[in-house]
Design a protein around this nucleic acid. Structure first.
Lengths: 249, 249
DNA sequence: TCTACGTCCTAACCTACGTTAATGGCCACA
DNA sequence: TGTGGCCATTAACGTAGGTTAGGACGTAGA
């Protein structure tokens, strides 16, 4: 399962992500490449970590999409985050007794398993790296807050547009988007479970976004035809993503 | 402004909160009491930290209620968290360039300002304490996720009930609730801005919760008359709060 | 070639919640 | 002893989004 070939630096998504926050030394970069060497494959639709589990490793997404989700007693599902290359599933969850939610692969996913010990030495030896990973968790928290705002205070149309804007920026940050087009492997059911809507209504709003020439969506690829229009429909302000580079485009 | 009298241990909410996660040594306890000695008062309705600010200190709520909030371009407000005694406003926000939201005092609030330096030495010298504070931030994250589930997938009635259950557990954890009654200094407008509803509809649902003898609410005090009934109306499962003690009651 | 299944799409109808607006209680302050 | 402001409450009415139930299409596997 585990391949031992190191990813070339240019393809390492964590490197790209953290590099967008602060410049990293050659040693820091190599330490990251080294830490993410043990890559494992997970099939689509399989849990990477299940609710109630107590993981021994820290899991880092190298390739593919995953979703954090919770199941309600009545069987309904709420997705609380999307995880894309460069995202940690459970950066410090070893402190808690057990997972209070599950993480499922939406596509075939490559995960790097990083042992608790390896993580500790990484943080101890490389304070700048630790700082960069702190930054990443704080951004994740900011994203959670923005999702609350999104679901709580925007209508269905703006909600979808906002999610698209966010995922576009995040995909660009790890070199997974170009020219406003990127891989969005979500069904309308996923979108519904993410945004607190029904699949039927998601469909209606997608039609509208298409009719207004803001997006093209098909074959699991999203193309943003009119970035300015989409952002204004969403009321999107990227500052909560705390990127160094100029935000938005 | 700042009073120099140390809070007696029994009244220090952070001590109570962290103690609910792991037993703390005498030295750890004194370190916390010492760190929270510089207490400052903030009037109700004033920002403790404003959007865009870059705080120099870490702020710890010692007494009173505060709310994290974001304002949308159209002027609407979404509250993304309630902060009660023992909660940090911005535990590691010094890493980010600036705040991406504001924090407002809902009642007169006592805040302890802890300098960045003091925080660092606390973490360096007392690894157990650092671990306990990690735990607290992870729980905060879990709460954010649960709020997404709450707003996304529960109806208005269950949403309100769920918030009440959560705040009850959290208030109990810091010794601020007894016999199912506690101080809830929120207007119906606050509840609306928290739960993605309108004040009018909040009112309707409160009437219903009262009519069904689940709660009493008045004079800024919430009394939970029927804890089991309220929890079942909410679909509340406290495991996301990761307490040591038996959850729920 | 047929069947099974997942996904997208649409239509008709329904309801939980929003909107607007008015009333009354309470309390601080003149 | 008023008066203004905040807050809770209620009613009448409007609508965004939910529900139910289909049909069309593509793909996988027998």
């Amino acid at each position: 399962m585990a391949t031992q070939r190191d990813l070339p630096e240019a393809e390492n998504p964590l490197l790209m992500k953290l590099g967008g926050f602060m410049p990293l030394s050659r040693d820091d970069r190599q330490a990251i490449v080294h830490a993410s060497r043990k890559v494992r494959s997970v099939q689509a639709h399989c849990d990477i970590i299940s609710d109630g589990e107590r993981p021994n490793h820290v899991h880092l997404i190298i390739d593919g999409w995953a979703a954090r989700y919770k199941i309600l007693p009545n069987g309904e599902r709420q997705i609380t985050a999307y995880l894309i290359p460069g995202d940690f599933c459970d950066l410090h969850v070893t402190i808690l007794r057990e997972m209070d939610h599950g993480i499922v692969a939406l596509t075939p996913v490559s995960v790097a398993d990083i042992s608790r010990h390896e993580m500790d030495t990484l943080c101890d030896d490389r304070p700048r790296l630790m700082r960069a990973m702190w930054w990443a968790t704080l951004v994740d928290e900011g994203v959670l807050r923005e999702w609350i705002v999104n679901i709580g205070r925007r209508d269905a149309y703006a909600r979808i547009a906002h999610l698209m804007c966010e995922m576009h920026v995040r995909m660009r940050n790890v070199g997974r988007a170009e020219e406003g087009a990127f891989h969005l492997p979500l069904t309308q059911d996923h979108l519904a479970d993410t945004l607190g809507l029904t699949p039927v209504h998601i469909n209606r709003m997608l039609q509208r976004l298409r009719a207004e020439h803001l997006i093209e969506l098909g074959g699991r690829t999203l193309t943003i035809l009119d970035p300015v229009g989409l952002r204004s429909a969403a009321g999107f302000d990227a500052s909560y993503l705390h990127n160094n580079e100029q935000n938005g485009r």
